[in-house]
Design a protein around this nucleic acid. Structure first.
Length: 352
DNA sequence: AAGACGGGGGA
DNA sequence: TCCCCAGTCTT
């Protein structure tokens, strides 16, 4: 059996009994598809049932107000879906005479319907030969063929869409699409898939090369976090106070300086009056110098560091901390982040 | 190409 | 916690 035959065979034996699979009405299928976007079946099913019950036709849906739609949508999340549906229902009434479109090219033009949903509705309602590519399909294909192209890039989307369309059984596109998604969802699960019971295991590239947990590859959307580091320069007898960093943050087990992180930029004069600072260095601290803020970019953080040189501090409070004094020769042996290493280069230059 | 958009369940 | 879920729209 080829790929399509295998998954359709599997689908006949293992498919769930989902309410929206009993119809070919594009309106009802649309309802189910929008509700199920980025939503688990168990979470979305009650909503589908309520919507299908209250608005059995697109005409009834279109006659509802946006407030009513959103009220019924309440708790499901991604509320733009509800707003787009309202708009689309009205447009279907006005420009499609109340007949919900069945073909891909018409569907793709509607608000809230992207490539996945247009392929789903067109294939389920009229067997148009368009392969669906959702999260399940990405995962199944990336594993089966051992493809490590990231799925959330333009290149990846095209690659997997082309592949799915090659595999598509055009004589029964709707059933194939249902089957490939159901297979991905139940058999080729994200975590701990049961490969031993999988009918595709013999040919599965990820299985053969032991990469089930590495695929699919997804580029992590890294949001840059802004952090404000206030470093303290405290010297005694020609030595400088150093901090060994702990776990759970950047630069684990490397060495920097005593650090007071603040949520926002802060002035040195305010900082040395803070309770936390006083508990470390006492109340009689004077500021000798404050550096200009130094920006330091990490992969997912933007650090704003300032270096505050202090004098007249007490160090009898320091014993509980991971701080210690070192001379310059010892300092040079410690693993320092680039930011710190850079700072010391300039600092030593100034002090010689 | 990257970010925003929700809420819930599983590991 | 992080990841993922029958994705799409905006910038």
């Amino acid at each position: 059996m080829n790929f399509a035959e295998e998954i359709i065979e599997w689908y006949q034996r293992n498919k769930r009994d989902l309410p929206w699979r009993k119809t070919e009405d594009p309106y009802i299928i649309w309802l189910s598809e929008i509700i199920m976007q980025q939503t688990r079946v168990e979470q979305g099913t009650p909503y589908f049932n309520r919507f299908a019950e209250k608005y059995p036709t697109v005409e009834l849906f279109a006659s509802a107000s946006e407030d009513e739609i959103l009220k019924l949508w309440q708790g499901l999340g991604y509320y733009s879906r509800g707003r787009n549906m309202h708009q689309t229902a009205q447009l279907v009434m006005e420009e499609h005479a109340g007949y919900f479109p069945k073909n891909y090219d018409s569907l793709i033009k509607l608000k809230g319907i992207g490539e996945y949903t247009a392929a789903a509705i067109s294939s389920f309602s009229s067997n148009e030969a368009r392969a669906v590519v959702d999260g399940n399909v990405f995962r199944l294909l990336s594993r089966y063929f051992g493809i490590d192209t990231p799925i959330n890039t333009g290149k990846g989307k095209k690659l997997f869409t082309d592949l799915a369309n090659e595999l598509l059984d055009k004589s029964q596109a709707g059933k194939f699409n249902q089957a490939i998604m159901e297979f991905g969802s139940l058999q080729c699960k994200p975590k701990n898939p049961d490969c031993l019971s999988c009918p595709l295991q013999a040919a599965c590239e990820a299985r053969k090369t032991n990469r089930i947990n590495e695929l699919p590859v997804k580029i992590k959307s890294l949001k840059i976090r802004e952090r404000y580091f206030n470093y303290i320069i405290a010297q005694k007898d020609g030595q400088i106070l150093i901090n060994k960093r702990g776990a759970g943050d950047i630069w684990e087990n490397m060495f920097d300086l005593p650090l007071f992180e603040t949520e926002f930029p802060s002035h040195a004069h305010d900082l040395i009056r803070s309770e936390k600072f006083i508990s470390c260095f006492g109340e009689k601290v004077k500021i000798r110098s404050v550096s200009a803020p130094v920006k330091h970019i990490l992969s997912h953080q933007k650090l704003h560091a300032s270096f505050i040189e202090i004098e007249s501090f007490s160090d009898r409070f320091l014993s509980e901390r991971s701080w210690f004094y070192v001379g310059q020769d010892e300092l040079e042996k410690l693993a320092q982040p680039k930011l710190i290493f850079h700072f010391f280069e300039n600092f030593h230059k100034l002090n010689t």
